[in-house]
């Protein structure tokens, strides 16, 4: 177990290096720079700015400098949000994303799993068809359609909930963004759960369990549930990261100060360090959650544990 973790962490280093290098040079290759805005700066000011941020140096030198800074955990100053650092921006934005994303995930599992299991147990009944059709709709309708509709109906018309803004994470401000983020996730979880449950219920070892005379409750809870969770775990590894970070649309619509917004702003304004910082953070999260998924696999499946 410890060896697996160690090996994976070591293997992550070259992966990260490739990601850093690629995104560093791709960003530099993009036309424009952090200070080429609509409002032209006087050449002297521009030169001063570039010197201050070392942008006048050869790109290889900049790359080397960036790497040494990263090794110290320093993502550098932001070019767009001047007078603040990328680290500070991430520290500010990440809790927002973690709160919304974490709640959405919990909601998705809490609702999606039972929904999918029940659909599998009542396969090809009205319950199955209705919940799976609902799930299909949840997957197909994009967030940028659902979220404004929710604002329109629940906030603007009914006045039940605030339409947006963070307000230091006040619970009523969380409801709509969490729902908007959770909806497609609930749908995915339910569909995956149903699919794997149906498959497991048709497997020979479930037939054996029934042949032993075990009551259906035991057959499902003891024999079917654990194997049916495995595909969900594979899905959740990357999906968790997507939910924690990919709330860019939700952040925009509800006006939340999460990282996603910084990422978009940074990309539009060629804020090299900000974009790099967020990219590296996402990459590390993806690597970490894939590792967690693999470890969970080992915990649940004795066959995976052996390797």
């Amino acid at each position: 177990m410890i060896r697996l973790v160690l090996r994976r962490v070591l293997a992550a280093i070259p992966t990260l290096l490739v990601i850093i290098t690629l995104s560093f040079f791709m960003l530099r290759a993009a036309p424009g720079g952090p200070f080429t805005e609509a409002r032209r700066l006087p050449p002297q000011v521009l030169a001063n700015l570039e010197r201050m941020y070392h942008l006048n140096e050869p790109v290889w030198e900049q790359y080397g400098r960036y790497l040494t800074h990263i090794l110290r955990g320093d993502f550098g100053p932001s070019y767009v949000y001047r007078s603040t650092t990328v680290n500070a921006l991430i520290e500010q934005g990440l809790p927002v994303d973690l709160t919304i994303g974490g709640l959405a995930l919990a909601l998705a599992l809490l609702i999606g799993m039972p929904l999918g299991i029940l659909a599998a147990l009542r396969q090809n009944t009205a319950w199955d068809y209705v919940s799976m059709a609902g799930a299909m709709a949840g997957i197909s309708v994009p967030t940028f359609v659902v979220a404004p509709l929710m604002i329109l109906l629940l906030a603007v018309k009914a006045h039940w909930l605030p339409a947006g803004s963070w307000s230091n994470g006040a619970p009523d401000h969380l409801v709509l963004p969490v729902l908007a983020l959770a909806l497609p996730l609930i749908a995915y979880v339910a569909r995956i759960m149903r699919g794997s449950m149906v498959e497991v219920l048709n497997s020979p070892y479930i037939r054996t369990a029934r042949a032993k005379g075990l009551p259906e409750r035991t057959v499902i809870l003891r024999h079917a549930l654990k194997p049916a969770l495995m595909p969900l775990i594979s899905f959740l590894g990357p999906a968790v990261v997507n939910t924690l970070t990919g709330s860019i649309v939700v952040e925009e619509i509800f006006g939340l100060p999460g990282i996603g917004r910084f990422f978009v702003d940074g990309a539009l304004n060629r804020d090299y360090t900000l974009v790099m910082g967020v990219t590296i953070l996402y990459a590390m999260l993806i690597i970490a959650f894939n590792l967690i998924a693999d470890l969970l696999y080992g915990v649940l499946d004795p066959r995976a544990r052996q390797q």
């Binding site: 070892y205 054996t208 042949a211 032993k212 024999h223 654990k226 194997p227 499946d301």
Partner: peptide, 14 residues
């Protein structure tokens, strides 16, 4: 009681 063809898949691997 009943036993089946493939003892590889007839037992729960978990």
């Amino acid at each position: 009681a009943m036993i089946f063809q493939d003892p590889m898949t007839a037992m729960n691997p978990f």
